[in-house]
Simulated assay, not measured.
Amino acid sequence: MNTLRRTVLSTLAAGFLAALLPQAHAADFTFRLQQFLPQQAAIPAKAIAPWAQKIEKDSGGRIRIQLFANMTLGGKPPELLDQVKDGVIDFAWIVLGYTPGRFPKSEVFELPFMSGEPEQSSRAFYEYVTKNSIDEFKDVHLITVHTHGPGLFHSRDPIAKLEDLKGMKVRGGSRIINMMLEQLGATPVGMPVPAVGESLSKGVISAATVPWEVAPSVKLHQIVKNHTGFSGNRGLYTQTFALIMNKASYDKLPADLKKVVDSNSGPDVAAAFGRAMIAADAEGMDLAKKAGNRIVTLDEAETQRWKRSAAGVRALWYKEVGDKGIDGQKLAAEAERLVEQYTKTK
């Protein structure tokens, strides 16, 4: 076979094989998503990453979402909302309570003993937001919202009864949680999750309010030896979260790719994020058990004492939002109804 013929046949064979193989190509749209936890933490690894991969798959590779953990693109966790609003980044996973005053109607889910199991509470929270507080997200394109699991304490000293909390410096993750801690007799210290581990190690705080889910990422099971939860199907507190997108980034997508984003938004995504919280809560508790830590679930009678002591938070919140023309009692009743509804349909 002469050289020319071999070259022609090789070229034809290469072309044939290329036709059979999927063609790699650059994405039509590359977006950046920033959040404040390590990438291996539960929500970034078990919820955000699979969600971003599904967007890429459903779009046939035309949308790519780059993930940036630990605020590596700059800024602090409370700035994420405005970073998305202003187009500095395209997506963010945010804690609503990190920006006080921006989500007054959505705050209702943070009231003491309002929320419980995270998958069902996240579905309830999504429906609540779409019906009652969607205007609070008018500056961004909302993908979904969700809650974490039942809130508890992680402390240097044991918390076995309400009196043990008196005067204790405790990290609170939102304005409402800090109000609750004060009602319970603690000294609230506001800070985002990434600061919790170091603050406990240095004695800046004596306890932290975070779910089991986040404990491994800040090594709480190594820093403290006491963990205190509550009886019943509602947690002492919850934080609320949202996955948001820059409006201009969404608007520039063609209709078929908007449909891809839309189909990966909403209540089912809220539930998926809630399920990630459930699995991570179990992992966090398991690490504490393996470390030989003291894990206490307060009995029903003691839990009722905490409920009575925390009840004043609702009255304070009703007055605060009432001054803004918001009917807090009506919103709280609606939130209670939705949580109960979704808990029953589990």
Rank of each mutant, 00 (worst) to 15 (best):
Q66P: 04
V129E: 03
G328R: 01
A279G: 12
I89S: 11
D164M: 08
F31E: 14
V214E: 15
A279N: 13
D299L: 03
G61V: 03
R123M: 10
A280T: 12
A310H: 01
N264M: 12
A315R: 07
F230E: 04
G116P: 06
G116S: 09
V269W: 02
E334V: 13
A14W: 10
W51P: 14
R123H: 09
A282W: 00
G172M: 00
L181S: 04
N70Y: 03
G167K: 01
S217V: 10
F16C: 15
K346Y: 08
F153A: 01
V108C: 12
R32P: 07
I223S: 10
F241Q: 04
N226W: 04
E136T: 02
L253A: 08
E127H: 06
I244R: 00
L73D: 14
G328Y: 00
L243I: 10
V261S: 13
K330P: 03
Y128A: 05
A279E: 11
G203I: 06
K307P: 00
P150Q: 06
A160K: 09
K138V: 11
Y126A: 14
E213F: 01
L165P: 08
K307E: 03
I89R: 12
L338D: 07
E110C: 11
T3G: 10
A255V: 09
Q222C: 08
P78A: 09
S133H: 01
M285P: 06
Q83L: 11
A280D: 04
T297H: 15
G75I: 11
H148S: 15
V95F: 01
Q66R: 10
R171F: 05
D164P: 09
L12W: 03
Q40F: 07
T147S: 13
E56V: 05
F125Q: 02
D58Q: 13
N264F: 01
V218L: 05
M1S: 12
S309L: 04
D268I: 09
I205Y: 03
R175D: 02
K166D: 15
M277E: 12
M180N: 05
V224N: 09
L152T: 11
L200T: 07
K290E: 15
S121E: 05
G274H: 05
P267V: 08
A255E: 05
A270V: 12
H141S: 10
M191I: 01
L200F: 04
I244V: 05
N70L: 15
Q83D: 12
D135S: 15
T144L: 05
V108T: 07
T30R: 03
M285H: 08
R5K: 12
G185I: 10
K202R: 13
L67C: 10
I205D: 01
D262K: 13
L184V: 15
I94G: 04
I89C: 11
Q66W: 01
D268Q: 06
K161M: 06
R294G: 12
